[in-house]
Design a protein around this nucleic acid. Structure first.
Lengths: 182, 182
DNA sequence: TCCTTCATATGATCATAATCATGTTGATGA
DNA sequence: TCATCAACATGATTATGATCATATGAAGGA
């Protein structure tokens, strides 16, 4: 009897060590050597880079199920800081274990590559949306990509996703309601 | 004697069929089934999506060495159009061959994943840069990431990368020259 | 019920980039 | 040399979003 074990990224991290991080705690710092890979289990971890002026740029907002700083698997040291945005739990796996699991299991490697490829797609789409100068165009492009307008109470999230102020989005939505009414 | 054959993505595509595309020619259309993977050899291929209003969004500008629409390897049909921006040459490989090469060679799979991971990183960075409201901040972030200001004659490329008009970039550069002079 | 809080909503003002217009410079070729 | 072209440069004007200030409404807790 042959047991086929279909391994997903979640199951790979599932048996691993969990670490609890209070909001604001640092998981790793830029330039530190990469020895572990992290998957977010609960909460949210931000991957940040700082400019000379101290301006903070958030490059990834990792939510449950996401692997943090994917490119670190192929780098010796981190290029960003990772900080818990909320109280969080991350699961950690030695980088070497992570890489050998990928090398040993072509299906898992394909899953990983597919995840990354979709990540590239999503990030490219976000960067193109943000290059549109008008709020109306950003909203059109976002809705046109199949994203649904969420329930009231979650509109600010959309504003943030489109990188406009909530006021600007409220106004655009108001314009549309007015437009369809008459 | 053992010959170790280190396979790169380029070598994988190297022996494959080449296709010449005149500027403006369509390589594939959205919704078409994915049967081939493409690597750009010369020229530039744009991956485009169209909104309801007919606005065109360019999601990838694939230059030589880049694989086009990476995520299509894990999808049955395309979600974008691919159009030659200039006269171009692409090399094509059946998707099944591409995927089995990855499955058969863990090193190649790692190379592919590393490429994708860096693509994610780069695209995330671009989208964050474009969420900065001021030209000065975008330029700072871009220079701070280690990008050098190119020779005169290439400044427009930077303006495009930062998603600002060339005039806005010229003015910002002029401000800086003035600032450092006194 | 009342109070607090947060998301939505909208007006007023301001800052800034886009746009349009025009000029300058430098490289290339006839 | 002159014509041409493209990139750099900059001024004037306009469009648009950010910001600040409030207000409204709904949900949840004391």
């Amino acid at each position: 009897m042959i047991i086929i074990m279909l391994m997903s990224l979640e199951t790979l991290f599932a048996g691993s060590r969990s670490v609890y991080l209070a909001a604001g705690k640092v998981l790793f710092r830029s330039a530190a050597p990469v020895s572990e890979m992290f998957m977010v289990n609960a909460g949210q971890i931000h991957l940040c880079r700082h400019t000379v002026h101290g301006t903070k740029m958030v490059l990834q907002r990792a939510t449950p199920g996401m692997v943090l700083a994917e490119a670190s698997a192929y780098s010796d040291s981190y290029h960003c800081d990772a900080i818990a945005a909320t109280d969080s739990i991350v699961q950690t796996l030695p980088k070497s274990v992570f890489l050998s699991a990928l090398a040993a299991d072509p299906d898992l490697a394909a899953t990983w590559a597919a995840t990354l490829a979709r990540g590239v797609q999503a990030a490219r789409f976000r960067s193109e949306i943000r290059s549109l100068p008008k709020v109306a165009d950003r909203l059109d492009a976002w809705l046109g990509a199949g994203n649904p307008l969420p329930q009231k109470g979650r509109w600010q999230d959309v504003a943030h996703e489109l990188s406009v102020t909530r006021e600007a989005l409220y106004r655009e939505l108001a314009r549309r309601r007015k437009g369809t009414k008459e």
